[in-house]
Amino acid sequence: MKKYILILLGIALYTQVSAQSGLKSGSQAPLFSGKDNSGKTVDLKNLLKSHKAIVLFFYRGQWCPYCNKQIKELQDSLQLLTTKGVYVIGVTPETGENIQKTVSKTNASFSIIQDTDYRIMKAYDVNYRVDDALNAKLKSYGVDLEKNNGNTDHVLPVPATYVIAPSGKIIYVHFDKDYTKRTTVHAILNSLN
C-alpha cells in the first residue's frame, strides 16, 4: 500500500513540475553564495577557483527517503569525489533544524545550504509550488512542508544534480521530474573525464 501511495504522489508531483526544465549541459552556472549547515560561507565563484568540479544537487527534505538515499550515496563516495578535486554542495528549502535531521540520517559531511528565499533553486530552474490538494495529501502521510521548511508557500525543488567545471560551465545535468530517479555517483565520476 505504501508503494502505491508513493507512486500516486510521484504522479501528482510530476504533473506539478511539468513547467520546470532545469538548466542544460553547456550552460553557464549561475553564481551564488550562502551559509552552509556548519556556518561556513559557500561561494560558488571562489570554489570554482580551487576545485576541479562542483557537484551541486537539490533535495526536498529529510522526510524524503529518495533524498536520504542519494545523500548517503554521495557521502559514502565523498572521499573518492574529493580525491578527484570535487566539492559537493546540497541545496534544500528545509530549515536548519531539519537539515540537521538530514545530516543525522545520512552522516552527510559536505556543505548543505538552506535556500530560504529559493534564490538558488530559481536560478537553476528547479523550484515549483506544491498545490493545496497535494499538500493536504502529503500532510495526511505525515509530511508537513510548513513545519519542515518554516514557511507557508510549499515550494520544493526538482531533485536535480549539476556538475560544474572550473570555467563555470555545467558539464553534467541530471534533471528528472520523477523524484524517485536520481543520478549515480558513477555518472558523476564519468562526467569528470
Results as ranks from 00 to 15, higher is better:
52 K>R: 14
87 Y>M: 06
37 N>K: 10
79 Q>C: 04
187 A>N: 15
76 D>F: 11
33 S>R: 09
112 I>L: 07
45 K>D: 11
3 K>V: 12
147 K>G: 02
170 I>W: 10
49 K>M: 00
146 E>I: 02
110 F>E: 06
14 Y>E: 13
42 V>D: 01
62 Q>L: 06
39 G>D: 04
90 G>L: 00
56 L>H: 13
138 L>T: 02
82 T>H: 03
85 G>K: 13
116 T>K: 14
142 G>F: 15
10 G>S: 09
78 L>P: 07
157 P>L: 00
54 I>E: 02
141 Y>A: 06
76 D>S: 15
173 V>A: 00
148 N>T: 14
107 N>Y: 07
88 V>W: 07
59 Y>I: 06
110 F>A: 03
19 A>D: 05
131 D>G: 15
124 Y>L: 01
27 S>L: 07
45 K>W: 08
162 Y>T: 08
44 L>H: 02
10 G>A: 07
83 T>Y: 11
149 N>K: 04
115 D>K: 01
137 K>F: 00
34 G>A: 01
85 G>F: 15
168 G>W: 02
59 Y>K: 02
79 Q>V: 08
2 K>G: 07
93 P>H: 03
184 T>K: 01
88 V>L: 08
107 N>V: 01
161 T>V: 11
58 F>A: 08
180 T>L: 13
9 L>T: 12
166 P>K: 02
163 V>G: 07
57 F>A: 03
131 D>L: 06
16 Q>I: 11
48 L>Q: 10
158 V>E: 11
138 L>F: 09
119 R>V: 11
56 L>E: 11
103 V>P: 10
106 T>A: 14
25 S>W: 00
86 V>E: 04
93 P>A: 01
149 N>R: 03
54 I>R: 02
45 K>C: 00
114 Q>F: 03
125 D>I: 00
183 T>Y: 07
60 R>W: 09
119 R>H: 13
156 L>K: 04
150 G>N: 05
135 N>P: 14
49 K>S: 14
62 Q>R: 08
